[in-house]
């Protein structure tokens, strides 16, 4: 069939930020399905909570301090995260590098805290269904933490190489975006794991 050129898109940029870029929507998609995974794990917790007259089963509730400390660090981490985001939008390579290093260090710190949290759950995964679901939920979130940390570290290294091209700034903003999801996911989980057993 004959073709008629009705429009020229040659002037369009070759990368975009946020909803203009493909990877941002990909991240959205994965967050949606991972969020569903969290929701279902919470559902499973509440189901077990509902069918068991004694909760937590055969164990004291988790110690509060590691989870609470994580909440504080997570919430504070939004600040450097957002600064990194803005630097990426401004394509300010130096600041992006700093921001990514800071975020990597925060991730590592949280991972250490997470280790303490596991140690202070006061139950093992094989003690009871309570122990199992608590370990599963915490494990699920830890997987997200580790994945995002890995992504951040790789991106940090990348931004120090010759590959630190402008379109990589878009990747940085997606990484920032995903971190917010990890933070956001933690808040209900914290309430569930640390406070519901105290009800």
């Amino acid at each position: 069939m004959r073709q008629t050129i009705v429009r020229n898109v040659g002037d369009l940029p070759t990368y975009g930020y946020g909803p203009r870029s493909g990877p941002w929507w990909g991240a959205m998609g994965f967050m949606a399905l991972e969020g569903m995974g969290f929701a279902l794990a919470i559902g499973a917790y509440l189901y077990l909570y509902a069918v068991n007259p004694n909760w937590p089963i055969g164990a004291p509730p988790p110690d509060l301090w590691p989870g609470t400390a994580e909440v504080i660090v997570y919430l504070l981490s939004i600040i450097p995260n957002e600064m990194t985001n803005r630097a990426a939008h401004r394509q300010d390579l130096a600041r992006v590098r700093t921001g990514l290093i800071v975020m990597s260090l925060i991730g590592i710190a949280l991972l250490v805290l997470r280790g303490f949290e596991f140690a202070h759950l006061n139950t093992r995964w094989d003690n009871s269904a309570y122990g199992s679901i608590v370990w599963l939920i915490l494990g699920l979130h830890t997987t997200h933490l580790v994945t995002d940390l890995g992504d951040t570290v790789v991106l940090t290294v990348l931004m120090f190489t010759r590959h630190a091209k402008p379109r990589k700034f878009s990747d940085v903003t997606d990484n920032v975006f995903y971190w917010n999801f990890v933070v956001l996911a933690w808040l209900p989980l914290y309430a569930l794991l640390d406070w519901v057993p105290r009800l």
Binding site: M1, R2, Q3, T4, I5, V6, R7, N8, V9, G10, D11, L12
Partner: peptide, 10 residues
């Protein structure tokens, strides 16, 4: 049916 409108510039 006669001709297909297209974009150029990629």
């Amino acid at each position: 049916t006669e001709s297909m409108p297209v974009v150029a510039g990629l």
